[in-house]
Nucleic acid binder design. Structure first.
Lengths: 121, 121
DNA sequence: ATGGAAATGATAATCATTTTCATTTGTGGT
DNA sequence: ACCACAAATGAAAATGATTATCATTTCCAT
């Protein structure tokens, strides 16, 4: 098992805490970091295992990695231009907890994304 | 532009209204239907455009197509054994609509899944 | 320095999806 | 029936993200 390369996490942070593996890789290349694509994938995977980042999917299926935080939020994404708005999801947190409890699930997490067309598109 | 092959929709329905393109294709093959993978993809895409089905993503990034309907539900999935429970998500529907309206988004859909450990695991 | 474990990265493999393009099918007009 | 033309089809190749392989390098503890 491999441990995460710290430069990967640092780059993800610098990218706004929200980027795909390919983007992190290209970003590091542009900044002159010497690192292989494989290591980027491995590091991100490891960060996911350690619950330091979590992963969700773009519309085209590409995985995007996002820093976890206490301030867990969700996204409202425009299908057309990709504009993303972070939104509060207190209602979701409650819903997830309630549903989990009702069905005897524990240690639960959740994903919730809203997608549509923004006012400009 | 191409129109959807009706057998594709029929197969998706028979699959429980929830399957990937590859699965629909294999299902049709097994049932002796003569159809190409390309046509399956094209038909599903067309059904999405016509808002007859919508598309979301599996954890591994594969696109899954689901019949649109009033009886829109969500899933509570066990990370360990895979057991899945369908749950009501009225709260989510309201939340999604409210958030979309607040930010000027229209034509919105959403995904929401809860995952954790079931009582047996 | 030395041996072994962990980390790295180039390359190849995998797999869903899309593109290309030649062929087939359907349709309307004559 | 025949012909022309558009739409539909599908085999095969291209694409692009992700994963697997595996030889090499780096890190430590002795």
């Amino acid at each position: 098992m491999s441990r995460s390369n710290p430069r990967v996490l640092s780059t993800l942070e610098r990218a706004g805490g929200f980027a795909s593996a390919q983007e992190v890789y290209k970003l590091m290349q542009r900044e002159g970091e010497k690192i292989g694509l494989t290591t980027v994938y491995r590091s991100l995977q490891s960060l996911v295992n350690d619950k330091i980042v979590d992963v969700l999917r773009r519309d085209d299926g590409e995985a995007i990695y996002r820093l976890c935080g206490e301030n867990h939020h969700h996204h409202l994404v425009c299908k057309s231009c990709g504009e993303t708005v972070e939104i509060e999801g207190v209602a979701i947190e409650k819903w997830a907890k309630a549903m989990a409890a009702e069905h005897g699930f524990r240690d639960v997490g959740h994903t919730a994304e809203i997608f549509g067309l923004c006012s400009k598109c």
